[in-house]
């Protein structure tokens, strides 16, 4: 396991069982603060299940998922765990929280493998719905301030639009702001979904196959966007991805899953040459072949 000092997210002994099927089996990993971490693995390895556990869509059968906003000692997490509480001011046990709370208070946002935009709403509205909570607070008790058109609410709405516009500029969609989201081409929809997740002001952004179905040019735009999110917004990224060129290009840290268990964990360089990873991807099970493959690597056939 790669040593991550002061991790943002720390997953320990996570298991998810559906009846007799073990989708995730005793998985532990850390996500570094300010890193782009990739979760890779063959189809059916349990990557999306891990995401669903992280974001509260599934209640894990077992394990702890701890998120700490500020630098906090491992002891703080242990104290919270035994206290039976769900979260303190900046330590959150995600497995105890409901899905909407995880976005709202723990500030973990996500996108979906099959794009889930509000296709009948405009691009701008999609970004405004993501700022629901701020606007809801501004609209006062029972929405009364908003209903009466109070200045404080109008200011909040203007700020929300400005924030949406900022993200539209970053994903190059200002001109399409007033078009229905369902009308956008596929690549734009992917980027819009990321921008929408970013409008919730997350500390950790979970992306489920953001490059799926993109052409090389769109992939390049995507990596640029993800880098800028990490560097300019200070949001850490955890992503599932099959496109190895994207993964190797932008990741600071890669975790490899196969059959629900972790088989490798390290920097892109170490993963690239890990015989177990290559075996899992090429579908090689035999120990001897694994050895053969690793020999091939050491003799310099692989990059």
């Amino acid at each position: 396991m790669m040593q991550v000092s002061n991790p943002l997210l720390s997953v320990a002994h996570l298991s998810m069982r559906f009846g007799g099927l073990v989708a995730v089996d005793d998985l532990s990993f850390d996500v570094g603060r300010g890193d782009i971490t990739a979760l890779i693995g063959p189809n059916g390895a349990g990557k999306t299940t891990v995401f669903n556990c992280l974001t509260g869509f599934y209640k894990p059968s077992q394990g702890r998922i701890a998120l700490s906003h500020a630098t906090s000692a491992a002891r703080d997490i242990d104290v919270l765990t035994t206290s039976g509480q769900r979260h303190t001011r900046d330590v959150f046990l995600l497995e105890r929280m409901a899905d909407f709370e995880i976005t709202r208070t723990a500030r973990v946002a996500r996108t979906f493998q099959n794009i889930r935009l509000f296709s009948g709403m405009t691009v701008l509205e999609n970004l405004i719905v993501a700022q629901h909570l701020t606007l809801m607070r501004a609209s006062g008790v029972g929405g009364l301030l908003g209903l009466l058109g109070a200045k404080s609410y109008r200011d909040a709405e203007r700020a929300a639009i400005a924030r949406a516009q900022h993200w539209l500029e970053r994903i190059n969609l200002v001109d399409r702001a007033d078009d229905p989201a369902g009308d956008l081409p596929y690549g734009d929809q992917r980027r819009l979904e990321i921008a929408r997740a970013m409008c919730t002001n997350p500390i950790l952004l979970c992306l489920d196959e953001p490059a799926a179905g993109l052409n090389p040019r769109e992939s390049a735009q995507l990596t640029q966007l993800l880098r800028s999110i990490r560097d300019e917004d200070g949001t850490s990224i955890l992503l599932i991805e099959h496109d190895m060129s994207v993964v190797m290009d932008i990741s600071d840290h890669i975790i490899v899953l196969d059959y629900g268990a972790k088989i490798a964990d390290g920097t892109p360089q170490s993963i690239r040459s890990d015989p177990k990873v290559i075996a899992a991807y090429l579908g090689v099970a035999d120990e001897e072949e694994v050895r053969a493959v690793s020999q091939e690597i050491s003799t310099g056939l692989a990059p």
């Binding site: 869509f57 976005t103 996108t111 889930r116 935009l117 509000f118 009948g120 709403m121 629901h132 909570l133």
Partner: peptide, 12 residues
């Protein structure tokens, strides 16, 4: 009405 799951993912 458009997408309940997306709503939950956005903190609603």
């Amino acid at each position: 009405r458009e997408d309940e799951i997306a709503c939950r993912a956005l903190g609603l």
